[in-house]
């Protein structure tokens, strides 16, 4: 047997972990399950090449990551998700001299309390959905999932400079939206 062990065990030992990994990125049970299957089959096909330099789990996650990136790339191509760089939505937040039009408020909340509030989850999700699709995608990958910037750039086929621009836009717009939806509805600190 190769160093990767028995493929039967992969499903038992790593199935939930890999499925969770896929679900956090594609948010679709069937798709995540298909990806898991593709990953396990690809691993089985290539298990002779597994040299044991990393753990089996790391090796499997590596294969799964490629499948996810391919999927996201295809999705972006199919739906032609583009965002013009020329039009700068962040200018709405600043005057022509680069000063804030509206002063950002100070938040007193902490991540733990906000995380425990179902209502905040809903508001956050609503606000994320108001962003242009490409901003949503990079924000989810980077700030929700914590994917490294290289992976996000590869999946979205953009330069790191472009990624930073999109993230800045997304974060500014989200902060504004959350201020309106959360604070101005009586959630004062």
């Amino acid at each position: 047997m190769s160093k990767a062990g028995d493929p039967k065990d992969w499903l038992n030992d790593h199935g939930d972990y890999l499925y969770r990994f896929a679900m956090s990125r594609v948010h679709n049970e069937d798709l995540a399950s298909d990806m898991l299957q593709d990953t396990l089959l690809a691993a089985w096909k290539g298990h002779e090449n597994f040299k044991g330099q990393s753990s089996v789990r790391t090796w499997l996650v590596g294969i799964l990551k490629h499948k996810i990136i391919d999927h996201i790339r295809a999705e972006i191509r199919a739906r032609n998700l583009a965002e013009a760089v020329e039009h700068d939505p962040t200018s709405a937040f600043f005057d022509s001299d680069g000063r804030w039009n509206e002063a950002p408020r100070a938040w007193k909340e902490n991540p733990e309390d906000l995380c425990n509030s179902e209502e905040f989850h809903t508001v956050l999700e609503t606000c994320i959905k108001t962003l242009p699709e490409k901003q949503q995608l990079v924000f989810r990958m980077r700030d929700l999932i914590g994917e490294d910037t290289e992976t996000v750039c590869k999946a979205c086929d953009i330069t790191s400079t472009h990624l930073h621009v999109l993230l800045h836009r997304a974060r500014l717009a989200l902060r504004k939206c959350l201020e309106c939806e959360w604070f101005e509805r009586g959630h004062k600190p």
Binding site: S24, W100, A103, P104, R105, A106, W107, E109, N110, P111, E112, L114, C115, F120, H121, L124, D143, L144, I145, G146, R171, L172, L174, R175, L178, E179
Partner: peptide
């Protein structure tokens, strides 16, 4: 800017926790 910066970090940390 300090407020804005703190909020951006807060949103990111909260998003990570929620996820």
């Amino acid at each position: 800017c300090k407020n804005s910066n703190k909020t951006m970090e807060l949103i990111r940390n909260t998003a990570a926790l929620i996820s």
